[in-house]
Nucleic acid binder design. Structure first.
Length: 728
DNA sequence: AGCACGCCGACT
DNA sequence: GTCGGCGTGCTC
């Protein structure tokens, strides 16, 4: 596709015109393609692929920022080329691999590649960059790399053309995997195996999957464990850490992605444990953390660019890190909503991981306690292998009916006898976890005469109580309800309904006098507690890790958590409960209150995969994700109608059964919204068609008549793929 | 986004 | 005749 890299040319040699193909940092969909610029003599050798540049756009004097993607000598643009204005920094921060990833991620979601690049490459910090450059050995400058990276771009471009919705089509690299297998097994010999043991699985099962760079769903061992530095973490964290160290032993980098900073702390503690016993060099860990300052972020990013294998740990944006020789992509708890990117084009780290795996050939691991329907689908396609944990590590789960207890104290704390007895016994030796649904004291107030919920007199928001004697306040506007009277019956007294974490803690304190009660919820969330006996009341997702594990786990608000109006509520509850149960000490009882049927059976047998399979079968019948994909199309009635028409024109014939369109229904303002449901196999067609519609609308935007001249026209057509909240 | 190009109504 | 209105389209 391209001739020899321009960077090889000696400065001063003017026998051929060198052209930089540049991606502009623009939000406009019309500009989301490469533009050619001539490289002036003084920038030859500096304007290399990956560097930030400034280039003129449209008229003299206006400059746009961008990245050089390729350097070629034959431009495919026939007009007169403008010249690259300036090379902003000599560091090639946008590697060929990350660029190819960004392009495909954007294409799959009908979004801008530059939006993805913005997630992938942090803002430049000049001082940080200078300091980093000074530390780099001056010899290894990217000249030698240039030709390589261009080949990579060409390869991946071809791969894109063939298809493929990563997972949708039953693409199989059976050949590659098969070919690798023999070599892989040879590699897992006692001599080369790292001493960082991956325990809880069949001997060598995980190691062999990593060595042959398989894609797999790994069931995490549901208990806690102690690192060499004495910290207690979920065993999943030591598993991920050991997997990364094993991969490092193969000379390759890992990217470990966790949903939130509490998980990140555990994973870093697990890695630190391996550092402390000399199995891992501290410099090999690169932390990409949502809590970092801009300069810290950029420093960590630059360290990923160094040409030696690393372990990259971070939240969802870490999936884009420029890893050197990527050997493993691992996601912890892939179904956690924090893995969903809130910025355009809204691609979840799971989907980025699938694309990156396909492009890099790295191993791919989805590690969790509770297999999601997304992962289950990939398992059923034989796209992922399943690796189960050794059954002797399974937890001890006891379902209990919500029936009121006969015990006076248990009644006080609204927990059934079994649960109460279990907690009392466990509290003699160690901490007990009590999971509740909601934070606060009493999340709901109701009129004491007519029992209707109480609303704020200022904004109609729901009233709640911060403590037993506190004046009720509004959950929306915070106004204190001083002189409240009921809308429906004029009553002036309310009563507290529902139990938040604080109220549960108060009640438990009365039921278990002399026992320490610790609260961990959204506002005050603890990462860990000691092994001393205590009642730890936590909202779901905010459960601290207990030293040695909890001696009992009580899941109190099962019924209430299931009552939420959402199609995916059962799957979500199963994940929350499984994660809480996994904090128990080995063989410690976990009591789930008020939940029966298949969910209880799933937890008792610890067969989340089987539950996911039946859930997925239901979603197939209903045509809901992840059985199919979704795209939301929002805009003026005309633009939506025309986009839908184009969709039907491009997905036709025998494919037409693979797509249907719901709506349009009214949306904000004068806009409407349609939901497109489609099979994975037509995903590429749907995305390109909608992308074309977006570009057309961006060009044809027109000001509505009669508006003031400074009225800013909103985009007339917006498209969002795989928005999981849309069906809730 | 901006900014130039272009094709119809009031003007020196 | 031309100046300029802003609808339309392009940006290497």
């Amino acid at each position: 596709m391209t001739s020899a890299a321009g960077a090889d040319r000696a400065p001063g040699d003017i026998t051929q015109v060198l052209v930089a193909r540049v991606m502009l940092e623009s939000l406009l969909p019309q500009l989301d393609r490469l533009f050619d610029y001539r490289i002036p003599d003084h920038l030859v050798g500096l304007a290399v692929p990956g560097v930030r540049v400034k280039v003129p756009l449209r008229s003299a004097g206006r400059v746009s920022r961008g990245y050089v993607i390729e350097v070629t000598s034959d431009a495919d643009y026939s007009g007169t080329l403008s010249e690259v204005d300036e090379v902003v920094s000599p560091v090639p921060v946008l590697t060929a691999e990350v660029w190819a990833l960004a392009r495909r991620v954007a294409d799959r979601a009908a979004g801008n590649a530059s939006d993805v690049v913005r997630l992938a490459v942090p803002p430049r910090q000049v001082r940080v960059e200078k300091a980093w450059q000074a530390r780099q050995p001056a010899v290894a400058r990217p000249e030698s790399e240039t030709t390589d990276s261009e080949d990579t771009v060409a390869d991946t471009t071809d791969a894109e053309a063939t298809d493929a919705d990563t997972v949708g089509a039953e693409t199989t690299d059976a050949d590659t995997v098969g070919a690798d297998t023999a070599g892989a097994e040879a590699m897992v010999t006692p001599e080369t195996r790292t001493p960082a043991q991956i325990t809880g699985y069949g001997p060598g099962a995980v190691e062999s999957a990593l060595a042959r760079r398989a894609r797999f769903a790994l069931a995490a061992v549901p208990t806690v464990t102690q690192t060499s530095t004495g910290a207690w973490v979920g065993q999943w964290a030591t598993t991920l850490a050991a997997m990364a160290v094993f991969t490092l032993g193969l000379g390759r980098s890992s990217i470990l992605v966790v949903p939130d900073y509490r998980d990140q702390d555990q994973l870093e503690a697990a890695l630190q444990g391996l550092v402390s016993v000399g199995l891992l060099a501290a410099e090999s860990i690169a932390r990409v953390d949502a809590r970092q300052s801009n300069s810290e972020r950029y420093a960590r990013f630059l360290s990923c660019l160094e040409e030696r294998p690393k372990i990259i740990v971070g939240n969802r944006s870490a999936i884009y890190a420029p890893a050197h020789a990527l050997g493993l992509i691992a996601l912890w708890d892939e179904a956690d909503p924090l893995h969903n990117e809130p910025l355009s084009p809204y691609v979840a780290s799971r989907d980025v991981a699938l694309i990156r795996q396909q492009q890099s050939g790295a191993a791919l691991a989805f590690v969790s306690h509770s297999q999601s329907t997304f992962v289950q689908r990939l398992v059923e396609l034989d796209f992922l292998e399943e690796i189960a944990q050794n059954p002797r590590f399974l937890p001890h789960v006891v379902p209990t009916s919500a029936q009121a207890s006969t015990d006076r104290f248990a009644q006080y704390a609204r927990i059934p006898t079994t649960a109460w007895n279990t907690a009392r016994k466990a509290l003699e030796t160690g901490p007990v976890l009590v999971q509740v649904a909601r934070p606060g004291y009493a999340p709901v107030l109701a009129c004491s005469s007519c029992a209707k919920p109480a609303h704020c007199q200022v904004c109609e928001g729901p009233l709640q109580a911060a403590s037993r004697n506190a004046r009720p306040s509004c959950g929306w506007c915070g106004a204190i309800a001083a002189q409240w009277s009921c809308h429906y019956c004029e009553g002036t007294n309310f009563r507290l309904v529902g139990n938040g974490s604080t109220r549960t803690a108060e009640d438990l304190g009365k039921a278990f006098p002399k026992t320490r009660v610790i609260v961990s919820d959204g506002t005050r969330s603890l990462t860990d507690v000691s092994a001393a006996p205590a009642l730890v009341v936590a909202t779901r997702g905010a459960e601290p890790v207990a030293a040695g594990g909890y001696h009992a786990v009580l899941l109190l608000d099962g019924e209430r958590m299931l009552a939420r109006e959402s199609l995916t509520v059962a799957e979500e509850c199963l994940r929350w409960w499984s994660n809480a149960i996994a904090l128990a000490a080995p063989r410690a009882p976990a009591i789930i209150v008020g939940v029966g049927g298949e969910l209880a059976r799933t937890l008792v047998t610890w067969q989340q995969g089987r539950f996911a399979a039946s859930e997925l079968a239901d979603r197939r019948t209903l045509r809901f994700p992840p059985a199919i994909r979704l795209a939301t199309v929002r805009g003026t009635p005309e633009s939506v109608a025309s986009a839908v028409k184009e969709l039907h024109d491009s997905v036709r014939g025998e494919d037409s059964a693979k797509m249907d369109v719901l709506g349009p229904v009214p949306d904000e303002g004068e806009f409407v919204r349609s939901i497109v449901r489609f099979d994975y196999s037509v995903g590429a067609t749907v995305a390109t068609t909608l992308r074309a519609a977006v570009i057309k609308n961006a060009a044809n935007r027109r000001k509505p008549a009669g508006r003031p001249t400074n009225y800013r026209t909103p985009p007339t057509l917006r498209v969002r793929f795989d928005d999981t909240e849309i069906l809730d």
